[in-house]
Design a protein around this nucleic acid. Structure first.
Length: 347
DNA sequence: AAGTCGGGGTC
DNA sequence: GACCCAGACTT
């Protein structure tokens, strides 16, 4: 198909120089694809570099502690990716003797690897004829072919996957897949696409019907909910504080945080004081309480707005537990906590 | 089929 | 504010 040939041609002339494009080693390609899920290249790039530097082989990653893997992932978000990455590394290292699955079908068995990622690895590493459909592909195809089916509907997913599979260059699946994604990322962008210099503008339906800014169609998602977080930052005279691991399902699973009091609305100082008094941690210890951030920090996630306050709790000593202030930097924490630690400047 | 899971960036 | 990003998984 001429469209596919032109796309590959465009790619060979315009592709960015990226580190994972110099290898077909499935470990590195897999690593890059997991990191790049719902993540722009610019944001993922330094994480890719640090992962291959710290874990040059799948065995290194498999032998790591989950805490260390999460620490390296800190700030990238969607932390289930890191947990699944670690679990899959163990699976490949132990059950498969370090040899990656080499087909789309078998790759799908890895935790954290879905249709897109299995297609990407299978095509890039093993020349399998499986089309990738990511956000870029949805955009390029919906515009070029003028397709109105919502891309986040079941019907849309099937339709675009089938179309991409029809278009893929069977002799160069790796080049085609990367070409269509790169084209979407660099030229056929969500906002202000470069239609004026586009090699496909004569045949692009959206461009010729002046519908570029209407496509792709996407079903709107629900609004973010408000939550109110009160973190208790204990600081004892002997330089210790308290952190805890988030065990529950939900955001930030297996990351660490200061003891949290979640309320249904902006908490009053009196209420926080009462809650601290009821903690076993302090026994009969007296404490001084002050609010660190006068302005509530609103940390925005995709589906939640976290109205956050950091309460400093100064005491003489802490009953058992706790860590020294300097140790905090070894634990993986959400960026919300990390930013506080940096500004508070422990020790 | 609808929700959930982050953080950074653009407009 | 709304929307997007080399999506996957759970309910």
């Amino acid at each position: 198909m001429i469209f596919s040939k032109n796309l590959i041609n465009w790619y060979s002339n315009n592709k960015r120089n990226l580190p994972w494009r110099t290898t077909t080693n499935p470990y590195y390609i897999w690593l890059s694809e997991i990191i790049l899920q719902q993540t722009q290249v610019k944001q993922g790039l330094p994480y890719y570099e640090s992962f291959i530097a710290n874990y040059p082989t799948v065995f290194d990653l498999a032998n790591a502690n989950e805490n260390d893997v999460l620490k390296l992932w800190q700030g990238l978000g969607y932390y289930s990716r890191a947990r699944n990455l670690h679990a899959s590394a163990k699976y490949v290292a132990t059950d498969l003797n370090g040899v990656f699955p080499n087909t789309y079908k078998d790759l799908l068995r890895l935790k954290g690897v879905g249709d897109y990622t299995a297609s990407a690895i299978a095509s890039i590493c093993f020349n399998e004829n499986t089309a990738v459909v990511d956000g870029n592909v949805y955009r390029v195809l919906s515009r070029y072919f003028g397709i109105d089916t919502p891309i986040n509907s079941t019907k849309g997913q099937k339709e675009f996957k089938a179309l991409a599979q029809e278009l893929i260059d069977k002799k160069e699946p790796a080049a085609f897949n990367q070409a269509i994604m790169e084209f979407g990322a660099v030229q056929c962008r969500p906002k202000n696409p470069q239609c004026n210099i586009c090699p496909f503008k004569d045949s692009c339906i959206a461009f010729n019907k002046n519908r570029i800014n209407q496509l792709p169609v996407k079903i709107k998602n629900s609004k973010a909910k408000k939550r109110f977080f009160n973190f208790l930052v204990f600081v004892s005279e002997d330089g210790r504080t308290v952190i805890e691991k988030r065990k529950d399902k939900g955001i930030w699973q297996n990351l660490y945080q200061f003891p949290l009091i979640e309320t249904t609305d902006e908490a009053k100082t009196k209420y926080i004081k009462e809650r601290i008094n009821s903690l076993e941690l302090l026994k009969d210890e007296t404490f001084e309480l002050w609010l660190y951030n006068k302005d509530t920090i609103v940390h925005k996630l995709s589906h939640q707005h976290l109205h956050t306050r950091f309460w400093i709790v100064q005491t003489k000593t802490l009953a058992l537990k706790g860590i020294s202030l300097g140790e905090i930097k070894n634990f993986p924490v959400p960026i919300l906590i990390g930013n506080f630690i940096e500004s508070f400047n422990f020790e």
